[in-house]
């Protein structure tokens, strides 16, 4: 447990800005353990950027860094992302 930990809900605004739609109810599948779950429920760590971790195995699903007018998104740990249309 880490006091700096939040959950995916806390990034709802930024995710909506990046993806253009509500993302906390989107379902992501972890590339580490294969567990699927809603983005609002994943663990969020804030430092220089945001790291989203799987609540089951701790694998880093996604990293986002905002710098000035640019945003970098790293999806390496995410096998799939299912959005509501």
């Amino acid at each position: 447990m880490d006091a700096l930990m939040l959950d995916g809900n806390a990034a709802a605004g930024l995710l909506q800005e990046i993806f253009g739609s509500e993302m906390t109810t989107a379902v992501g599948t972890c590339d580490g353990c294969g567990t699927a779950g809603e983005v609002g429920a994943v663990l969020l760590y804030r430092g220089a950027g945001l790291a989203f971790r799987c609540p089951h195995c701790g694998n880093v699903l996604m990293k986002i860094v905002v710098g000035g007018e640019r945003v970098w998104v790293d999806f390496r740990g995410l096998r799939a992302l299912e959005l509501n249309t």
Binding site: M1, D2, L6
Partner: peptide, 28 residues
């Protein structure tokens, strides 16, 4: 966060389905 962790794990221990437990952590 420590409060949410304690409550969520307590509810799971009592047999509640994890999918029915929605959490929101207030961090620093």
């Amino acid at each position: 966060t420590p409060f949410v962790e304690a409550v969520a794990s307590g509810l799971v221990e009592l047999g509640h389905e994890p999918a029915r437990i929605k959490t929101e952590r207030f961090g620093p």
